[in-house]
Design a protein around this nucleic acid. Structure first.
Lengths: 110, 110
DNA sequence: TTCGGTACCCACACTTTTGTCAGTAGGAGT
DNA sequence: ACTCCTACTGACAAAAGTGTGGGTACCGAA
């Protein structure tokens, strides 16, 4: 949130995909296409409703995801990746592969 | 730090490169080769000594960086990427490029 | 004897992030 | 009338992250 300019591209990228969850949300939306709130919640195990909403709001504000409201009862809201979000997702792919490859080693760290 | 298994590779990767700094440290070490503590501090603008040390300790424990002590006075300690750290750095490259490409858009977000 | 330079460590306080547990709207089904 | 369903919202507190200002050790130089 500091108004200064980022020191490099990686810095900027890390800022937009913030904490622990945004990457996973991006990943889920990329893999499974548009998802409604409840589906997304199930797609990202361990996240609380509150966290999911907060993250989605930020990602919407960043232009990473699109929020489509269907005026129904009970309510239905669908989240999907924008072009921007999709491009981030692509850039994130190698990182995901790296994680897969070194999964055992990473799990042994704590 | 939770002992459960990660839900995907991206999850695992995000865990090892933790917060805001580890990616930048990795990047600096990758670009400028082995660096001593003070040099690293200058290479990552805005980080405090305390943070740098904490992050380096964690990264050492994760096997991402190697710490080489030279028994001199005044002290000299050099940090460098391990193979493991280097591979993460490579996987991080596309993310850095993405950030560069969309820098303006990202800066306009807050 | 005092000072400079390097790489740290420690205690404390503050800020940000994350979790928990309630509660709301409003039409449909019973 | 009452309950169910979904997507939220809000208050509160615990946990994690981060900054600040000090201190330590060591040896050589002045």
């Amino acid at each position: 949130m500091t108004k200064r300019t980022y020191i490099c591209g990686l810095d900027a990228a890390i800022t937009v995909m913030g904490g622990k969850w945004k990457g996973l949300i991006l990943f889920s939306l990329g893999e499974e296409g548009p998802l409604r709130f409840g589906e997304l919640r199930r797609a990202v195990p361990g996240i609380s409703e509150r966290m999911l909403i907060l993250q989605l709001r930020e990602m919407e504000a960043s232009g990473l995801v699109h929020r489509e409201v269907y005026h129904q009862v009970p309510p239905k809201v669908e989240y999907s990746l924008t072009e921007f979000g999709s491009s981030l997702n692509t850039a994130l792919a190698p990182l995901g592969e790296w994680g897969e490859e070194h999964m055992e080693r990473i799990e042994a760290i704590p």
